[in-house]
């Protein structure tokens, strides 16, 4: 446990070594929030408007909720794993007495902690500048369930990332391409970061909700807003857990296969 604590501390300090990179990454997140905030603000310019089951307070709370959940779920250092495989750097870790998965999970947690601090500051600054009618969840039961759904989302993203990062075992040149397609396009598009999934027609919604992606952002934020309750809430949590375990087993299987064909190219 102590060695992972050291990894956590070193990784945390490393983020400060590239301060400009980190700050600019946060600035980019703010721009994305601004687009969705002003879009919804325009749609709900009349305070009495209710569309897709949202009123002005709930949709703008959704946008602000996305900011926090994104920081917790999508902040990750494990995006470098595919480069490790493609360039043969994975060999360095395989020789060390550390679990490669735990190593990256620790680094991810360190990155999430730092990003959460910055997201909270951005949240406060934007809250005071834009003055949105924010919905504060007071039900302790819903807040605990929200926390649980965020933890599920963090594991879910970690396993998706490791499955996608395994592609260079077979095709080293596809590392960035597979990440672009899955993480930047599919995950961003279907997770609820860009728009809430229930904007879609019912049949398309059911299709998207059967995939793991909405349980990364959309579902946790819906739980916070109190839009998912009772049986739907239990069902959502179980689907999230199901996908987490399914992806964990798939990740272990694909990595075992990958390590057998790994040739440490470049070492």
């Amino acid at each position: 446990m102590r060695k992972y604590w050291q990894i956590f501390k070193i990784s945390f300090q490393e983020e400060f070594a590239y301060r400009l990179n980190f700050i600019l990454w946060r600035v980019r997140n703010v721009f994305q929030i601004l687009l969705t905030f002003f879009l919804w603000s325009t749609v709900f310019v009349n305070p009495n408007t209710v569309i897709f089951g949202y009123d002005r307070a709930k949709i703008l709370s959704y946008v602000f909720g996305v900011m926090i959940v994104r920081a917790l779920v999508f902040s990750s250092r494990a995006v470098d794993v595919s480069t490790d495989i493609a360039q043969g750097d994975l060999s360095n870790y395989l020789l060390k007495p550390v679990s490669y998965f735990k190593y990256w999970w620790t680094r991810d947690v360190s990155s999430k902690a730092l990003n959460l601090v910055f997201a909270a500051v951005e949240f406060m600054v934007l809250y005071f500048i834009l003055k949105p009618p924010f919905f504060f969840q007071k039900d302790i039961y819903m807040l605990i369930t929200f926390l649980l759904s965020v933890i599920i989302a963090m594991f879910l993203y970690f396993f998706i990332l490791f499955v996608v990062s395994a592609v260079p075992f077979w095709a080293p040149e596809l590392g960035w391409g597979s990440q672009f397609l899955m993480l930047i396009v599919v995950v961003e598009g279907l997770s609820g970061s860009l728009f809430p999934t229930n904007v879609l027609p019912t049949n398309l919604q059911s299709l998207v909700l059967a995939t793991p992606f909405p349980y990364l952002v959309y579902f946790p934020v819906q739980v916070y807003l109190g839009n998912v309750t009772g049986l739907d809430l239990v069902k959502g949590i179980f689907i999230g857990i199901f996908w987490t375990f399914a992806l964990m087993f798939f990740m272990n299987w694909i990595w075992q296969k990958g390590l057998k064909v790994y040739e440490s190219i470049g070492r």
Partner: peptide, 29 residues
């Protein structure tokens, strides 16, 4: 060619996601 097709599919999907969102949003508003 495979890398090219992955990026091409990614770009088309990204366009379609936002286009689809805008389309369904405007159906409502």
């Amino acid at each position: 060619k495979f890398t090219l097709s992955i990026f091409l599919v990614g770009k088309i999907l990204r366009f379609l996601f936002f286009f689809g969102f805008l389309y369904f949003l405007l159906l409502g508003t």
